[in-house]
Write a protein that binds this DNA or RNA. Structure first.
Lengths: 227, 227
DNA sequence: ATGACTCGTTATGAAGGCGTCAAGATCGGT
DNA sequence: ACCGATCTTGACGCCTTCATAACGAGTCAT
């Protein structure tokens, strides 16, 4: 679930510096040095975010924005050495989401990237539906639908547990984390609660509650949601 | 369809200057000089955009952002005299969409406002008419029609609740969000109100008010409009 | 085999949430 | 000032949900 960033700049040094920083912060980085390469990479890889320098050798920066915007709503943050106000306004009105003037501070860029990704993530509601063979879970609508199409009713606690497990689907979630997040840190040792609620969830979701396919127990460690 | 902007700043001069500029550009401007007034105005008027100064007399600016973000996704642009990088990052991570340092150029602010509104605008509006087997709701005309074709009369509060539920039809809407959007953040815990009005809506809309088909209660979490 | 341990399952009293009704309070128009 | 519509507020009984305990099954080391 890493965020994929397309970085476009004609200066190989800057490109390298940004790549190192972003990779260290957990982003998957793809780079392009020309406008055409940027458009190709955008179409091929559908990045979650674009960092765009306006001073490209082949195409005007605003042309890249226009072209991208003709088919995509991916957030675009412009990085530019031009301090001219008209450039800023032009880029923003063409479809850019944000505009930073070089030199900028790396922490600020990272904060603006987080803000841009956060914005683009929620309203579109794409990744919020997790479907299996037997049921599907809509995290945004807080809705679980059966294979027959009927809705499954979950209590607040059941939903809280399922939500954590599904958000980190595939990964092992420790009992401690579940208990701390739902009941509070003081209940870290009440593993009893988890057994009760996991049983209820299995009865409601699993085709064969006695032999769980999705809500897996890792004995002594925690639980895992498996697709 | 003019864009309504809430401008928050403790300095009356700046407030006045911004108001004049924005009004001249076709925005509908509402102002607030304190954090509390801002939160009240936000809940009452549902602005399309918030311009927020961080240096308020009563509340910390980030507290205002947090409170707004607990129930609203309205774009927030922070205007601040603080040039400190940490403030910027903090505000952005709390939920702000953009951050401008004073003094800023008016054209740039306007361009960033256009970008923020553009982003937030379109993805939410779906069909304005929602029809079920028993009634149909016209969100644009604010009208509800019975199966027999007669119009159902709703009070303003009833309509406000129904509108929120129908706009996010299928999704669970938390009690907190309903109360914050309609009565204001201070009424977050008055779940009593919701019970009364949901009962009234059911009596007017449901074929069998005792056994709701459309206005579903999710105990402990919120309400859902089901098609 | 025994005991220690973890897990799944079920049952139950208590607490809190919910629907309902009805009586004041408030507001707006005549 | 009056009246109707609307909103607030409190009280009551029902129902859902929660915490908790008890018990059986499986696993592992001794």
């Amino acid at each position: 679930m890493t965020t994929r960033v397309l970085v476009v700049d004609d200066d190989a040094h800057i490109l390298r510096a940004i790549r190192i920083h972003l990779t260290a912060c957990g982003y998957a980085v793809r780079t392009a040095q020309t406008g055409r390469a940027a458009l190709r990479a955008g179409a091929e890889e559908h990045p979650d975010l674009v960092l765009l320098d306006l001073g490209l050798p082949d195409l005007d920066g605003t042309a890249v924005i226009t072209e991208l915007r003709s088919w995509s709503t991916v957030p675009i943050i412009v990085l530019s050495a031009r301090t001219d106000g008209a450039d800023k306004i032009n880029a923003l009105d063409t479809g850019a989401d944000d505009y930073l003037t070089k030199p900028f501070s790396m922490p600020e860029l990272l904060a603006r990237m987080r803000a841009a990704v956060r914005r683009s993530g929620s309203p579109t509601d794409r990744d919020t539906v997790v479907a299996t063979l037997d049921f599907s879970i809509d995290l945004a609508a807080k809705k679980v639908t059966n294979r027959t199409g009927t809705q499954v009713h979950l209590t607040p606690t059941e939903w809280a547990i399922l939500e954590i497990l599904v958000r980190d689907r595939g990964a092992l979630v420790s009992q401690r984390r579940l208990l701390s997040e739902i009941w509070g840190p003081a209940y870290r040792t009440e593993t009893n609660y988890l057994r009760v609620y996991l049983a209820q969830l299995r009865r409601k979701l699993e085709p064969e509650p006695a032999r769980p396919r999705y809500l897996i127990t890792e004995s002594g460690m925690g639980y895992r949601f498996q697709d």
